[in-house]
Amino acid sequence: MAKYDISGAVLLSVIIGSILLILLGISGVFTVIIMGFIATYLTVENQRSYKVGGIAGSVLGFLLFVFSFFTPPELPYDLPNILDSGVSLAIGGFMTLILGFIVSIIICYALGSLGGFIAMKLFKKETIEKGYKTSSNKQFKARKKPKKARRSLNGPNK
């Protein structure tokens, strides 16, 4: 396992995820899950969490959202001017844009967290607690002494 901090692991996983997405043509959903897995795997042991994969997924979601502004869709006909229809239609389109951004970030965070959760379960090290005396640990159970008889209000104990 590589030992990177959270920002380095996220940056490396975004680079690997963009390579998977653009060059290899792997679907976007699987790319985000793989990115979350890689980001969690590359993180230092004490900082490792499924949230690191979620952060990497949301960073890729943001980059894909920004990239989509520079790639216009191919439409077979000319669209009418949106300002001819009214300002309310333009405001509605802007609200749809903001809602789409929020939903895409949430979905990418959830998929990245899923990849991070898988990495956490696969590479979780068993930690052994030493020196703690617990009642569930058999070697540390204290032997109980018999209790002394207490005085009662009813008279002497027989």
Rank of each mutant, 00 (worst) to 15 (best):
S113F: 02
G92I: 05
I107S: 14
S88A: 13
L114E: 02
L114N: 01
F101R: 05
F117D: 08
L122Q: 01
Y132G: 04
E129G: 08
S136E: 15
L79N: 09
G100R: 13
G115I: 05
K133I: 15
V87Y: 13
P80F: 03
M120D: 07
I118T: 12
D78Y: 07
L79Y: 10
T96K: 08
A90K: 01
F123H: 02
T96P: 00
G100E: 06
K133Q: 12
G116Q: 08
A90M: 08
L111I: 00
G115V: 04
G92Y: 05
I118G: 08
S113P: 01
K133W: 11
M95T: 06
I105Y: 01
D84W: 01
I105F: 04
S85Y: 11
S113Q: 04
G100M: 08
I91Q: 00
Y132I: 15
G131N: 05
G115W: 02
S113T: 09
N81I: 03
G115A: 10
N137D: 15
P80V: 06
V103S: 12
I118V: 15
E74I: 12
N137M: 05
K133H: 11
F94Q: 02
S104I: 05
C108V: 02
Y77Q: 09
P80M: 05
P73K: 13
F101L: 15
E129I: 14
G115D: 10
I102Y: 11
C108D: 00
K124C: 01
